[in-house]
Design a binder for these strands. Structure first.
Length: 341
DNA sequence: CGCATTTGACCTGCGC
DNA sequence: GCGCAGGTCAAATGCG
């Protein structure tokens, strides 16, 4: 197959995630906030523009809805603050994009997809608390589950094992919720960007259609189930795709040590509560969530939260009202801070 | 020695 | 049902 053929068949070939080919001013880091503005038809129409690397990372990215971060901010905030926030100890990577993937298309093993009905119940903007707690519970359950899955191997055999397996299977069917995910595209030569937390690598896999492997990291803090995946964009090897999954239930070690504090203190954020996670950092800048649902890309940074129901046999991406549970917590927190500085 | 990384095996879900 | 790909585990290995 020739490259041209490949290109024509490649649904992502038109994707130019950062307008690299059009905007050469890469000193203007572009954040992309993916828009779930309830205009599902538009998003569905455009879902074929997803960059392959990101899709491999588990993201659905409506190309129509990305915009430069500076545009998002429309001058109200210096984007460099954000990139600085992620700069940490690495060699000035440029954070290019963030994608919220709270409910990526159900595909990954382990944590799994939402089967049945309860998990499909997207949190409305009014259900943030329960949503957040559910996520946390799900995370814990997941980690327990995976342990359970493995335990019988070493200890018990035969019936016990079968029973255990069956039990876990049923459990999995009962409740499967994916942690919210946030991906950051970062222009950096360093794969594993320092973000203030301590991570332990627990796996590495070759990524299909990409010469670059994907690394899996887990937060080393006890009882913290946050994971992250790091991979390079095969389209632009200078771009690192970092995907965070879950939410830290502890303070950033770097913050405690004062490192991150120093970093953040260089920004106007210094007086604000420091986010535990980059995505939290971002969400602190999100506008009120009604602008998310109303979808005024020209006015606001928008989060996407695309969901594909795997049981939709026509592979039609069905967009839900996003699960703004986590988001709303953060957004409301942010707006509260804005209202009451 | 303790902790982090590497890496092959294994598990799971999905598409055909 | 089978094969593939993503994700995870855990023993082996490396390193400070």
């Amino acid at each position: 197959m020739s490259n041209q053929e490949k290109d024509s068949n490649n649904p992502y070939n038109h994707y130019d995630p950062f307008n690299y080919n059009h905007h050469h001013e890469m000193d203007r880091s572009c954040f992309q906030f993916f828009n779930d503005n309830n205009n599902s038809s538009e998003l569905v129409q455009n879902h074929h523009h997803h960059p392959q690397s990101l899709q491999a990372a588990g993201f659905d990215m409506p190309s129509s809805s990305y915009m430069s971060f500076t545009d998002c901010l429309h001058g109200s905030m210096d984007y460099s603050i954000l990139s600085r926030a992620f700069d940490m100890s690495c060699s000035s990577p440029e954070v290019i994009s963030q994608i919220d993937d709270a409910s990526k298309k159900a595909s990954a093993g382990g944590v799994g997809e939402s089967v049945g009905t309860s998990a499909e119940n997207p949190s409305t903007p009014n259900s943030s608390i329960s949503s957040s707690s559910n996520e946390a519970a799900a995370a814990e359950e997941d980690s327990l589950k995976s342990k359970k899955d493995k335990q019988p191997k070493g200890s018990e055999e035969g019936e016990e094992e079968d029973k255990s397996k069956k039990a876990t299977k049923t459990k999995k069917k009962e409740k499967r919720q994916r942690e919210p995910r946030f991906a950051f595209l970062t222009k950096s030569e360093i794969d594993h960007l320092e973000d203030g937390y301590r991570w332990r690598k627990y796996g590495q896999k070759a990524v299909k259609n990409s010469p670059y492997p994907r690394s899996y990291y887990r937060c080393t803090t006890q009882k913290c189930s946050v994971k992250k995946r790091v991979e390079r964009s095969f389209q632009d090897p200078s771009i690192v795709i970092t995907t965070y999954e879950g939410q830290h239930n502890h303070q950033c070690p770097a913050t405690l040590r004062g490192n991150a504090a120093g970093l953040f203190s260089t920004s106007p954020l210094a007086s604000a509560a420091r986010p535990n996670l980059p995505h939290e950092f971002f969400t602190q800048f999100l506008p009120m969530n009604n602008s998310i649902t109303q979808g005024q890309p020209s006015n606001s940074m928008l989060y996407s939260n695309l969901t594909t129901h795997h049981h939709d046999h026509h592979q039609q991406r069905q967009l839900q009202v996003p699960d703004f549970g986590l988001l709303q917590d953060l957004v409301s927190s942010f707006s509260h801070k804005q209202m009451n500085p």
